[in-house]
Simulated assay, not measured.
Amino acid sequence: MRHSKTSVILAIAFLGVPGGAHAQSAAARSAAADAIPRDSITGRLADLRRIHTPEGIEVLEPIEVNGSTQWLSIRGLNRANPILLVLHGGPGSPVMGASWAYQKPWEDFFTVVNWDRRGVGKSFSAADSARLGPTMTLDQLVDDAAAVVEHLLARLGHEKLVVLGYSYGTRIGPRLVERHPERFHAYVGLGQAAGPDAERQLYATLMERVRAANDTTAIRELEALRPYPPAAGPGAVDKLLATRRWAREYDGGWYGKPTFDLYFALPEWGPEYTAADVANMQPAMAWAERHLIDRAPAPRPARLVQRFEVPVVILHGRFDLHTPYQSARDYFDRMEAPHKRFVTFERSSHMLMFEEPGRLLLALVEEVLPLAGGRAPF
């Protein structure tokens, strides 16, 4: 079956490293981890992150969402603080298991919710993959997000929340607020996706970087991918992934790191994840990517939301090539919103929470928190 060129390009733009590369690094890490039992590490991190305030909330729970069991982590020092719902990327790469490495300061100001979507992360082990596979569409993920929002507002007694889309989550977030603007203080795009032109910008920017470095191997391999972007059909996905392997080598994924191996290793110490959850991560990612990218019928051309009825804040790394910086900036310039703000992170690519964590916290507090009424008084 043939897909539209646009749909293949947009879907692949959010993929992480290929499974084989992760599997090799996982074997090496496993040997090193034998020195300290996993339960000891996760237990200490859980104790370090424990929320002790009487107003606080620290919940890890499964809920039923449109016929499937999906997991939520809800954490914050004061449950009266604005809710920040994080829509993870991938499309099958949740951040819940890695959130221990960066999220704790956010919890002073927001009640932070990480949600493992249908069939991925903690939600994979309970999933009936054969039944859920045909339901893996962007529209279904938006419907699931709406149900999660209603659950959170009722559970925490709020009328609105802030939704933060990250990478593939930035495809879900705009559609969600377009359908239900009355439920949101603001939309935040972290590594904002911006349509099919992004792939052309990725290739052009990457070629500029490798030529400036006179990297003859990269130049030769990238030129062999032409015409680019590839037409849908055999070999298209391999070409799209090949550009991203070189993009990470040239600071387009995680500034200063040539792979995402470290990011995929972090859940191995994540207190929210069991050892079985960690083992399921890679199969779940592959399953989600297969069903969202290579499924029938051929998807409709992607549509970008142009008009927002809520404030918009875009947070983007200058060097990002997974969701290219210039395409995100162009999309932002075309947006209509009652308030909009674009914040550039000058030494970041696609992993802002690790690359410039202090500046990211500052942006959330200065740019986003006021849009939600500020932090609740103790």
Rank of each mutant, 00 (worst) to 15 (best):
residue 196 P to R: 08
residue 85 L to V: 08
residue 90 G to P: 01
residue 243 T to G: 04
residue 90 G to H: 00
residue 105 P to M: 10
residue 352 L to M: 09
residue 209 R to F: 13
residue 296 A to M: 12
residue 85 L to T: 03
residue 102 Y to K: 06
residue 132 L to T: 12
residue 22 H to N: 12
residue 41 I to L: 13
residue 43 G to K: 09
residue 181 P to Q: 06
residue 143 D to P: 04
residue 18 P to H: 10
residue 298 A to G: 02
residue 377 P to I: 09
residue 42 T to S: 11
residue 305 V to P: 15
residue 54 P to L: 12
residue 301 P to G: 09
residue 270 G to S: 05
residue 21 A to V: 06
residue 255 Y to V: 07
residue 72 L to Q: 00
residue 13 A to F: 02
residue 139 D to R: 10
residue 17 V to K: 09
residue 274 T to G: 07
residue 132 L to Y: 06
residue 61 E to M: 07
residue 14 F to Y: 10
residue 94 P to Q: 04
residue 357 P to F: 11
residue 238 D to P: 01
residue 269 W to Q: 11
residue 335 M to L: 15
residue 291 H to R: 08
residue 226 R to L: 15
residue 365 V to D: 01
residue 363 A to V: 06
residue 263 Y to H: 12
residue 243 T to K: 00
residue 262 L to A: 10
residue 351 M to P: 00
residue 269 W to G: 01
residue 210 V to E: 03
residue 359 R to Y: 11
residue 159 E to V: 03
residue 34 D to Q: 14
residue 319 F to N: 08
residue 208 E to R: 14
residue 236 A to H: 05
residue 13 A to K: 02
residue 187 Y to N: 11
residue 332 F to N: 05
residue 339 H to A: 15
residue 92 G to W: 00
residue 204 A to I: 10
residue 354 F to G: 07
residue 247 A to V: 07
residue 353 M to L: 13
residue 144 D to I: 10
residue 2 R to L: 15
residue 82 P to V: 03
residue 271 P to H: 07
